[in-house]
């Protein structure tokens, strides 16, 4: 065990370093320092020796264990880890390769995916659901329950983000706190950019119209609630970025978000329950497929598309505002 020495003593190495750094005059200073420092007294020396002697055995054991950890243990663990890595990776690779080898060839007509279900969707989908867009007929009629789950997943995700990110309501009512939030929000952002406002005044109505078109024509052409709702939400976000929260909150607040989401989801669940109930019990239903290709046709599908689109638009917009300032 090396004797611990204060670094102030004039060791040759230190002198050399000092000389390297500052030149010749440093020697004088180092000499003065060493002379003026008081030598440790006899009593002090004895006490420190006693303190040092007592834990010597424990220290030896500790050092031994530590040395083992440092030198052999790390090496062993690393080797074990590497070996386990290789074994696990090889096992997973073998499993996946075996599975891939057992898969049926891609695109084969006799594959299990090409069964009577998809044939029925393609052949009788238009007749049974009234939707020209087979995909819309599938997701909002045959598998409407699944789509309700998807809309609810979005809603639950929005709720979770609200729980995590929303600033407490008490804070928001305070005027000073409101001002602080506002400056915090717009500190790094170009405020009220005139160019963006002019462009947004042209673009936002067009974007909203495109979104509405995609939603309303969901049963006639590619599109539907999810894509159209995203377009609507993007238009809302553009409007917000151009004109700020003060203008957006005139027509879209937390209350609007709540009302629209809950109403749309409830409408979806209730109307689809009705159609499931009548369909399963072979009762006559007021919902008819209508004439395929017309705007008001395909039974419930256009209305369900509107509901899904509203939920998606609200969720997209809520995500953006929650991540930006912690409130809808």
């Amino acid at each position: 065990m090396a004797r611990i020495r204060s670094d102030y003593g004039p060791s040759p190495r230190r002198n050399f370093l000092l000389w390297l750094r500052s030149g010749d005059e440093c020697f004088d200073r180092a000499l003065i320092d060493s002379v003026s420092a008081p030598a440790p007294s006899e009593a002090e020396r004895g006490r420190s020796a006693e303190v040092r002697r007592v834990p010597r055995k424990e220290e030896k054991v500790y050092r031994k264990a530590e040395a083992w950890n440092r030198e052999k243990g790390t090496k062993l663990t690393r080797r074990l880890y590497l070996a386990l890595c290789v074994v696990t990776a090889l096992a997973v690779i073998l499993l996946l390769l075996r599975t891939a080898a057992l898969l049926p060839p891609f695109g084969e007509a006799s594959n299990p995916a090409n069964n009577e279900v998809s044939r029925r969707y393609i052949e009788q989908g238009m007749e049974e659901t009234g939707a020209v867009n087979i995909v819309a007929g599938m997701i909002l009629d045959y598998r409407a329950f699944d789509t309700l789950g998807e809309s609810n997943v979005l809603f639950v995700a929005a709720c979770t983000v609200i729980i995590l990110l929303r600033v407490a309501a008490g804070d928001r009512d305070d005027a000073a706190r409101r001002l602080e939030l506002e400056t915090d929000d717009r500190m790094y952002e170009p405020k009220d950019d005139l160019i963006l406002q002019r462009i947004a005044a042209v673009l936002v109505p067009l974007v909203w119209m495109l979104g509405l078109y995609i939603i309303l024509n969901g049963h006639l052409s590619p599109g539907g609630g999810f894509s159209g709702g995203t377009v609507l939400g993007a238009g809302l976000i553009l409007y917000l970025n151009a004109f700020g929260f003060a203008k957006t909150e005139r027509f879209f607040t937390y209350r609007t978000f709540r009302v629209i989401s809950v109403t749309a989801l409830t409408f979806y669940a209730v109307s689809k329950s009705y159609s499931f109930f009548t369909g399963a019990n072979h009762l006559s239903s007021v919902i008819t497929p209508g004439t395929p290709g017309m705007l008001f046709s395909a039974g419930l599908i256009p209305y369900l598309n509107i509901a899904v689109g509203l939920v998606v638009a609200c969720t997209v917009y809520a995500f953006y505002t929650l991540f930006r300032k912690g409130d809808v």
Partner: peptide, 20 residues
């Protein structure tokens, strides 16, 4: 659409850089 949006977005990025 792209002529309307692309210059505006570059303008906003540039303005943000100058602000920050």
């Amino acid at each position: 659409f792209l002529w309307l949006t692309s210059p505006v977005s570059s303008h906003l990025i540039g303005r943000l850089e100058v602000t920050v």
